[in-house]
Amino acid sequence: MTYEELLTETALANEQVIVMTAENRALVRNLPGILGKRFIDTGITEQTMIGAAAGLALRGRIPVVHALAAFLTMRAFEFVRTDLGIPKLPVKLSGFIPGLLSDGNGPTHQAIEDISIMRGIPNVTVFAPADEDDLVKMLPQIWSSAHPAYTRINTRKTWYDHEPFVLGKAEVIAEGCDVTILTYGLLFEQALIAADMLREEGLSVGLINMRSLKPVDEQAILQACAQSSLVVTLEDHFITGGLYSIVAEVLLKNQTTAKVLPIALNNKWFRPALLPDVLQHEGFTGKQIAERILGYQTVHHQPEILTPEFSE
C-alpha cells in the first residue's frame, strides 16, 4: 500500500479527515477528485494552512496537512507552536522531502533541523519512518492519536518488512555486543548494509530503527548502551538537537554513560546532487558508515591490561 492509498482509505472511512496542502500535491495528486470539498489547497501559504487546520481541528476535524518539510517546520513554526502545540490540536503534519531526501535542493529547502525544531514544542509528537512499508504501518496510530504530530514522510521502497508499529516504541532489528546502530528514516537502508559489512568483519552488531523520536523509546536506548561497547547514532540531520542529543538526554536523565559515536551532518548543509551522490559525498553510504565505525573501533580500542602474577 502507498501513502496516498492509505490516506484515501482513511479519509473515506472517516468523514472527519480533511486533507490539506500548501500547493504541494506530489503525495496526494488523486485526492481532489475523490474527496471534493474535503481537499483544501491554500496555495503557497504554510502559515495560513496551519491556522486553517487549527480552526478545522477545533470543530472536530482531523486535518492531514502537506508541505515541503523545510517550510512546514520553519516558515510555519510559530503557527505550529501557537495554534497546534499550545491547544494540543490533533493536526497531522506530513513533511515532504525531509533530510537528504531533498537531495537536489539547496540549503533553503533542506529540512535537516526539523527533528530538533518539532520535538521542542510541547505536545507535538515526532516520527521518522524508515521507508514506505514502515510509513504505512506507522501512520494509522499517528493519525488516530489525540496529539498534533509531525512525520518525516518517506515513500522510498526497500526490501525490509517491518514489524507492526507501537506508538513510542523502537523496532529492534538485531542485538549486538560490539556495536549497536541507532537510526531513523532514509538512512535505515544504509544502516542495514553497514551492519552486514561489520558482521563480515567479525563484529556482533545490533541495529535499532528508532521510528518514534518523541515520544522516544528510552528503554531501547538504555539497553543498547548497556549491551554494546559502542553505540552509533546515524541520522540525516544536524548533529545538534536530533538523535545524538536525544541519546545524551536519556543517558543523563538516567545517570549513566556510554561510548557514543555520532554520524550526522556536523552543523553544515549538504551539497545538492542526486541522492546516491549526496550519500557518497556526505559519507552516508553503508560502506562509508561501516568503515567509519571500524576506524573508530581501531583508534579507541583499549587492549586488556594484564596484571602479572608474582610467586613468593
Rank of each mutant, 00 (worst) to 15 (best):
Arg81His: 02
Gln227Asn: 12
Ile40Ser: 00
Arg119Thr: 02
Phe71His: 00
Ala22Lys: 14
Ala224Val: 10
Pro276His: 10
Glu282Gly: 04
Gln16Ala: 14
Thr10Ala: 06
Leu27Arg: 03
Gly286Cys: 04
Ile208Asp: 12
Pro272Phe: 03
Asp236Trp: 10
Gly242His: 02
Asp131Trp: 09
Lys214Asp: 06
Ile293Asp: 01
Ala69Met: 10
Arg75Trp: 11
Asp196Ile: 00
Leu261Glu: 10
Met138Leu: 11
Gln190Asn: 01
Thr73Asp: 09
Leu251Val: 11
Val205His: 05
Leu68Arg: 08
Leu89Ala: 09
Ala26Gln: 14
Ala111Thr: 02
Ser144Tyr: 12
Gln141Val: 05
Ala13Gln: 10
Leu251Gly: 06
Ile305Phe: 09
Asp196Ser: 01
Gly241Leu: 01
Tyr160Ala: 01
Asn209Ala: 15
Ala69Cys: 13
Gln302Pro: 01
Thr240Cys: 07
Ala11Cys: 07
Asp236Ala: 14
Ile18Gly: 08
Ala52Met: 15
Asp161Leu: 14
Ala290Arg: 03
Thr155Gly: 06
Val231Arg: 04
Glu309Phe: 13
Gly295Lys: 05
Glu113Cys: 04
Thr125Ala: 08
Asp236Ser: 13
Arg81Tyr: 01
Val17Met: 13
Pro90Val: 14
Thr10Gly: 00
Leu56Val: 04
Val260Ala: 02
Lys169Ile: 06
Thr298Glu: 14
Ala53Glu: 12
Pro308Arg: 07
Ile115His: 00
Ala57Ile: 10
Leu187Cys: 07
Ala53Gln: 11
Tyr150Glu: 04
Asp277Trp: 11
Phe188Trp: 07
Leu222Phe: 06
Phe188Gln: 03
Glu4Met: 09
Asn267Pro: 05
Ile173Asp: 06
Gln288Pro: 03
Phe284Leu: 08
Thr21Glu: 15
Ile115Asn: 00
Asp236Pro: 12
Thr257Ala: 12
Ser245Ile: 02
Met49Gln: 05
Ile86Phe: 14
Val17Ser: 12
Leu230Asn: 05
Leu12Ser: 02
Leu139Trp: 08
Glu23Ser: 14
Asn123Ile: 02
Tyr296Arg: 03
Leu7Lys: 02
Gly99Glu: 13
Asn14His: 15
Leu135Asp: 06
Leu100Pro: 03
Leu93Glu: 00
Gln219Trp: 02
Phe127Pro: 00
Thr256Asn: 00
Leu279Ile: 05
Gly176Ile: 08
Val19Ile: 15
Gly55Lys: 05
Gly286His: 02
Leu198His: 00
Pro140Ser: 12
Phe165Tyr: 15
Phe284Trp: 04
Gly206Lys: 13
Ala22Thr: 15
Lys268Pro: 03
Thr42Cys: 03
Leu7Ile: 15
Ser245Leu: 01
Ala57Ser: 09
Phe238Met: 13
Ile193Cys: 04
Glu312Asp: 14
Glu291Gly: 01
Arg75Ser: 04
Leu306Met: 10
Gln47Leu: 09
Met118Phe: 08
Ser311Arg: 11
Ser102Asn: 15
Ile50Pro: 08
Leu274Ile: 10
Ala224Glu: 11
Ala290Asp: 07
Arg211Gln: 15
Thr183Gln: 09
Glu312Asn: 10
Lys88Val: 02
Met20Trp: 14
Leu294His: 00
Val124Ser: 06
His300Pro: 01
Glu189Asn: 13
Ala57Val: 02
Phe96Met: 12
Leu31Ser: 05
